[in-house]
Write a protein that binds this DNA or RNA. Structure first.
Lengths: 359, 359
DNA sequence: CTGAAAGCGCTTACAG
DNA sequence: CTGAAAGCGCTTACAG
């Protein structure tokens, strides 16, 4: 005779001839259950197709068996962002074997962001969160710590933090990029930076400055953006409008570099002969535009996976493990080359450009 | 005197001088509570900072207050996919006011996919799911229906289905694209299709065929892909290697079209004078490559939002509302133009191309 | 090694 | 309109 309703722990206990408590012990790997009893219980559970109820467990253990990711991004940026989809895929890789699941919140601004964390905590929606896109004076670290919510920071925060860190040194890639350009002969290099409120944006910019000054060069110009494709194009136009445009542009992301490439081509400039450009991320797209982008490849999938593993270790074992992933690497490709002997000269009377030298 | 532990419904009941049941009634908007009593209870809850415990509610109501999205995508495709991030942003828009949250699962293959749904149901992780990327003979519809899980299908399924559908006619865009190319004078048009297991891939291909035949033309060639950037480039190379290459290529996605553009440029071909190309999605990137892509713009954010609203209506009110969103629209841009009077001729002795006619 | 019982914090008939 | 109580399905001291 089978039971029509979904079986409960009581059914399993009855079938195995033990108490509910014992069944619970077996399913929570607690010691002190005789092997035969244990086997009998597992058998009964299997026969009945029983698995402990998640909501019942959640209520009595105050655990949600979920991890939270709050992504703050404008809608217009989100579709061309190469980081998050891959980062999330990495998290899911780590979660595949576990009985935990990812709760994702996408919010437009800081207020909604803070509310999102508070709701997640109040409702015990998640057992821990990923802190990505760390910012200057990031309020989240304090808020999350005060709420008593376990977390992992993706990258090093600027402020002291109790949370484990999973880092991937992407700034290193900027140094390699600048060194590469300098070696090609470039002396006038500009940087189309990311969002200068975010630590990774700031770090890349600082790295750029340092790399330039260690080559005894001054940045032609540094332009902050919101990481959008449109901003990448705009910044490029701004650089071309300079009296002394750079001979090379270091972009903080592949999508911005691709937009920059489009704008340069539209203006009739050749890459890399008229302008060298470099991207950042090492996306598949970067390999397939023409000329293929010199870029910096990081591994966001591995980053997500490591972050999830670290967060699980913190939640389950209470251990803080910091992880340092292999640094981002320069991928030299076709979009960089030696500068022209003579530089591009801006036609002062018009916004268009004329190119000196021969084609 | 304040309570140090988190307040419960019992604390609120005591403070308001009523029973727990009444407090529950008030918070679940059930009729039959005197206005003053109601006000007193709300006041007490507010004073104590109480909100009903989600896990307790979940246990007694068998509701999780969450929606599920299972995305089946290869890791290599996921970062250049313009659809999902925007679709998810749309879902979150609809969820912003609600007390529900999104549970996201990313899986690599069909087995993991089925397991994901089963786990979501067994653990009552979600109250309903989004069914995206509908396939030919899609097993999910039956499985999800059998599990008794509410769902919304994103696009029309090929099989009879009990679920509400939120549709955006994107195929219409293909017709407009073909008409646009034909009007420009193209007679030899190829299609770099999407994944031909997915209904939207199949529909776009069918639409392409129909549009061609209604213009009395035969497709030069149709090549199925996995939607990856690399596949877009590969298919383009394949078309160029034909004895009679097309004069225009209709791609099933912007990323593939951009990769195709890169390959064409690499081969020294001019777009659109040597080859017209069109994308699909209307991404920001499409506007910023050179030449800007003629493409078909849909609105994945609106799609996600409508899908979430429809799913919530089904779950909360039990009502099935079908939604038809504005059809995808042609955005004619710079990547399409009239074909050359004389066609490209393949040099039979070598894989490279020579171009007839003058530049 | 095992069992009986309280507790997690709600919801919901049911009786008044 | 209101209260007392059972029930959702687990976990976990506690006593034996």
């Amino acid at each position: 005779m089978t039971i029509s309703r979904k079986p409960t722990i009581a059914d399993v206990a009855r079938a195995a001839g033990v108490s509910k408590g014992l069944v619970s012990f077996v399913f929570n790997d607690r010691p002190g259950v005789a092997p035969q009893t244990r086997a009998r219980i597992l058998q009964a559970a299997d026969d009945l197709g029983w698995r402990p109820s998640l909501s019942a467990r959640s209520l009595s253990t105050r655990t949600s068996f979920a991890l939270g990711l709050v992504v703050r991004r404008y809608a217009k940026v989100i579709s061309s962002d190469p980081f998050f989809p891959a980062f999330i895929a990495g998290i899911e890789l780590a979660l595949a074997g576990e009985s935990r699941v990812l709760v994702l919140c996408v919010v437009p601004d800081e207020d909604s962001e803070m509310r999102a964390y508070q709701n997640l905590v109040h409702d015990r929606r998640v057992d821990g969160v990923f802190l990505t896109d760390l910012r200057l004076g990031d309020r989240r670290l304090g808020v999350v710590a005060n709420l008593g919510l376990p977390a992992v920071t993706v990258g090093h925060p600027e402020q002291p933090s109790e949370f484990p860190v999973v880092n991937l040194d992407d700034s290193a890639g900027i140094k390699a990029v600048v060194a590469h350009l300098v070696q090609l002969g470039h002396r006038h290099i500009a940087h189309v930076a990311g969002d200068m409120v975010m630590l990774h944006g700031i770090r890349r910019e600082r790295c750029f400055r340092e790399a330039m000054s260690s080559a005894d060069l001054k940045p032609t110009k540094i332009i902050g953006t919101d990481f959008s494709v449109a901003a990448g194009a705009r910044a490029t136009a701004e650089l071309l409008a300079l009296r002394q445009p750079p001979t090379a542009i270091v972009y903080a992301s592949d999508p911005m570099a691709i937009a920059g490439l489009g704008l340069l081509q539209e203006r009739g400039l050749q890459v890399p002969s008229d302008m060298s450009i470099t991207g950042f991320d090492g996306t598949e797209m970067a390999r397939h535009v023409f000329p293929a982008l010199t870029t910096v490849s990081s591994d966001p999938v591995a980053w997500g996976q490591a972050a999830a593993t670290t967060l699980l270790t913190l939640i389950v074992e209470g251990r803080r493990v910091n992880v340092e992933l292999p640094a981002a690497e320069l991928i030299a490709s076709a979009s960089t080359g030696p500068p022209r002997p003579q530089r591009i000269v801006t036609n002062l009377s018009a916004p268009t450009l004329t190119v000196s030298g021969t084609h």
